[in-house]
């Protein structure tokens, strides 16, 4: 298996009037060809900052201050804007958080997809591009006739499908789906996610799902990374994360969501609020909310280590803590 994307010690900071906001502080992970990874965390933990860093779509006050992002072995942090434009969409495509507003209201939906195709493949004629869009529409379950409609004539679910079709337009190696279904109702959410996962397997693409909802991610991702306060605190395959969560935060996250399939149990909320990324402390950032925090946790940052094969955790007390939590809860 070859790595499509390797993120190594990525640091992306925002400079604000109040100080530096460390939105991504030493993020590392790898996504292989055909693999789907989930990136989970509360809102404001820096998930979107990671995806925007990979696309290099940073706000004016944001800067990648360290680390590498290797896309097929090429470090895209150092690329010029024009070179980066060639990788965008053709190499890495994206499904945005707010699909409702990802389509420009004044252009026909089909034309917006064709625009992406023609921008990257100048040899393709308009008619060929149109045919490709029609195929994509069929693939995502939309009527190709709707290509000539405007976004306001689409329903929420249709827009979401159109945005997915758009992300597939240039056959990218990697698709980043940032909260792809949050704005939709649960039934449609489930359906679209399953279809998306099917398409991904069929086309053997790599995929990064980003969500605050670990239950959603669990259904589609083979590998899950848990983010907290700008850092990855736990990373492993989906089964391990669910069976043997090692970081207290992961445990908390999993207890925060009801499972449709599993047995009934009391929901546990994680006390406290997500940390302020501004002037982050030197100690473990989860310590203030952690029921197991010891003196050590308040003194230094825990290292990000491989506690068992392919299971990385950043915690001084990594263990399967399921029992204790249910007692506490």
């Amino acid at each position: 298996m070859s790595a499509v994307l390797e993120v190594k010690d990525l640091k992306m900071y925002y400079s604000t009037k109040q100080g530096m906001v460390k939105a991504a502080d030493g993020i590392s992970f790898t996504v292989n060809q055909g693999e789907s990874m989930g990136l989970v965390g509360e809102s404001g933990c820096g998930k979107t900052s990671v995806s925007m860093s990979i696309m290099r779509l940073l706000a004016e006050n944001a800067k990648i201050v360290g680390g590498q992002i290797l896309f097929k072995g090429q470090d895209i942090v150092k690329l010029k804007e024009e070179e980066m434009n060639k990788i965008r969409w053709a190499g890495i495509a994206m499904i945005f958080q707010a699909a409702m507003n990802s389509l420009n209201p004044v252009y026909r939906v089909g034309d917006q997809i064709i625009e992406a195709i023609l921008a990257h493949e100048p040899d393709v004629t308009f008619e060929e591009a149109r045919e490709r869009v029609a195929e994509l529409y069929k693939l995502v379950g939309l009527d190709p006739k709707r290509m000539d409609n405007y976004p306001h004539e689409y329903s929420g679910g249709m827009k979401q499908r159109a945005v997915i079709a758009m992300s597939l337009a240039c056959n990218p190696d990697l698709i980043i789906a940032d909260e792809p279904t949050t704005a939709l109702d649960v039934i449609v959410q489930d359906m679209i996610l399953k279809e998306l996962s099917k398409i991904q397997k069929k086309l053997n693409m790599s995929m990064i799902y980003i969500s605050h909802d670990i239950a959603v991610i669990a259904e589609v991702a083979e590998k899950i990374a848990i983010m907290y306060s700008g850092k990855i605190v736990e990373l492993s395959d989906a089964v391990t994360i669910f069976k043997k969560p090692a970081h207290p935060y992961t445990v908390g996250l999993m207890s925060s969501f009801p499972s449709i399939h599993g047995e009934k149990k009391k929901l546990v909320t994680i006390p406290g609020e997500p940390p302020n990324l501004l002037n982050a402390p030197d100690h473990c950032r989860f310590a203030p909310r952690c029921p197991f925090a010891t003196k050590e946790c308040w003194e230094k940052t825990p290292p990000y280590e491989e506690i068992e094969p392919n299971h990385y955790v950043a915690c001084f007390h990594p263990q399967n803590l399921r029992k204790q939590v249910s007692i506490n809860g």
């Binding site: 969409w89 495509a93 945005f96 420009n104 921008a119 990257h120």
Partner: peptide, 8 residues
């Protein structure tokens, strides 16, 4: 943002 991401 979408338009930028499309590499236009």
């Amino acid at each position: 943002t979408t338009a930028r991401a499309k590499g236009l």
